[in-house]
């Protein structure tokens, strides 16, 4: 599917989506509440069929957080990057996509572990790398750790 068609497709599900083309991928920024529906739609529609989630990550911006989903369709071969914008940095929450792509289960745990974003309905949301009693979320920009981070 061409990028223009894809754009219309996403707009038909989430009218407030914003688009940007960078790094060779089309990025669609959507509000976090709409993400799950959009993802499910893109995964299941015959003409999009984004069945391969190859990267899932979080980004900590000064005033908001985003969860970035890199999607590819193995049948059609097209790509899209979805960005779910979470307005709250204090209590970031978003619906899980692990029911759509199984790989998201581990990746979301990683994002939860390092960014503190809570994925609603996730089957097993625990820290994955750090100890269970670790305080703070290391990949946030305001994370301070005098012991483990050595400033050069």
């Amino acid at each position: 599917m061409e990028q223009e068609q894809l754009k219309e497709r996403i707009l038909s599900v989430v009218p407030e989506a914003e688009f940007e083309i960078t790094g060779g991928y089309m990025n669609a920024t959507v509000p976090s509440a709409k993400l799950h529906d959009l993802a499910k739609n893109l995964r299941e529609s015959e003409d999009t069929l984004f069945d391969y989630l190859f990267c899932l990550t979080g980004v900590d911006w000064p005033d908001h957080m985003t969860v970035v989903y890199h999607l590819k369709s193995t049948t059609h071969g097209h790509n899209v990057v979805l960005k779910a914008k979470i307005d709250s940095r204090e209590n970031p929450e978003i619906d899980t996509v692990s029911d759509i792509w199984q790989t998201a289960e581990f990746h979301e745990r990683e994002v939860f572990d390092l960014f503190g974003i809570i994925f609603r309905n996730h089957p097993d949301l625990r820290r994955i790398f750090l100890d269970d009693d670790w305080v703070g979320y290391p990949l946030r920009k305001d994370y301070v750790d005098k012991v483990n981070i050595i400033e050069l």
């Binding site: 750090l130 290391p138 981070i149």
Partner: peptide
Amino acid sequence: LGYIHRSIEK
């Protein structure tokens, strides 16, 4: 996991 997590991304 995480026994040798070094937070390379950070």
